[in-house]
Write a protein that binds this DNA or RNA. Sequence first.
RNA 1: GGCCCUAUCGUCUAACGGUUAGGACGCCGGCUUUUCAAGCCGUUAAUCCGGGUUCGAUUCCCGGUAGGGUCACCA
Length: 431
Amino acid sequence: MSAKVKTRIAPSPTGNFHLGTARTALFNYLFAHKNGGEFICRIEDTDKARSTKEFEANILSSLTTLGLTLDGPITHQSERTEIYKQKLEELIKSGKAYLSQETEGESKEVIRLKNPGSKITFTDLIHDEVTFDTTELGDIVIAKSVTEPLFHLAVVIDDAEMGITHVIRGEDHISNTPRQILIQEALGYPRPQYAHIPLILAPDRSKLSKRQGATAVSDYLAMGYLPSALINFLALLGWSPQAGKEGTEQEVFTLAELVERFSLEAIQKSGAIFNLDKLNWLNREHLRRLSTEEQVNYVARALPDVDKNILSKITPIILDKANNLEEIKKLKEARELDYFFTAPSVSKELLKTPEHLPKVIELLEKISESDWNMENIKNAVWDYATEQGRGNVLWPMRVALSGREKSPDPFTLAAVLGKEETMNRISLYYV
RNA sequence: GGCCCUAUCGUCUAACGGUUAGGACGCCGGCUUUUCAAGCCGUUAAUCCGGGUUCGAUUCCCGGUAGGGUCACCA
């Protein structure tokens, strides 16, 4: 009989929710759900000096926004000193740990674990057998005092007491594992299954840090990356849906679809570089899958001052040009969107062949207000444009409307601007 | 430096020991109802090196090299 699968994410609130932690959380979530188990969160706030409530709030809200729901209450290590104290006393009583008088620096007492000094081999679900010689570790410090447990001790006690069956965490913890197993054995706890996932790397293959740019999930959320896109991207970083005979070449997934396909076997052994190009592509893909209303609301986040009616007309055009909110803001700052709101002033040179404009006006005049749409506008000028050379007619028409060398096509522009505004703008250059 | 982990296109990755080494992003090129973008199509591009084992190694073993992680009274 095997116990029900239970996984956890154990962030310490000493910084905003990191991309790497998010991916670890995702893999824990996917594994638990795939196996009908539970996924929970434990806040590791034993370092009172560095932990803050603000960071904790950032971590929790990021988790929620990403859709990584928890299957149990959130626990705080700071509230569990009683159990640590009890276990610590137990260890000391049995002689497995002892009070050690430190002579270096200020002299005071800490609690050390008596290290039997053996080789420890554990099975890692991703790396297979891993062996460490623990002799060189010495007697490790497990607490500053009976009421001040250190990381390794707290982790071991909590994982065991909370019934964690699978410890899925970053590879940076792989060398911590033997010392935790030592504590585990002293306490008589069973050993959970371990899976150490490779790290996320910066483009220069170094550890992803603030130096190379944003590392917090909340930063990416603020830049307009959709939670679903972020999840999708993180999943593909180190895990492959192509592996195995059930493999697929599909790349765009929802969280539910990821749960369906996930397996630890398909996780890569080596580190993966964070590739912004791919994230942008995925964000676009997820943006396209949003409903029209959701898309308009999305664009509104970057253009809060724009009238809703206009916004709903230009949303498809904007989403054609931008991958995220930042890019939309840039379009606005570069005045690329101005022609949607105010008539441009256009130089005669840019119009190239304005002599065709009178005819264009004549043709457009025949369309009634109620029939004013892209299809009809195009039909109205198309034959004339084809006859005169399309560029000769379409170019000045488009430039009169946008004032720009580059812009959406004239039919789209005219439809968005409406009949009156379109006629006014073109009439300005009536020769 | 000790210990540990890792090594397929630029990047993310696929390939029961037998494949023209596949897909995706990006790049480059082409197509389209002017331009830009989008879209569609296509091209370019990889098994770190050296030894084994084998009829046959991307795949298994050993060594080297390179990269990463870790060596706290942080987590």
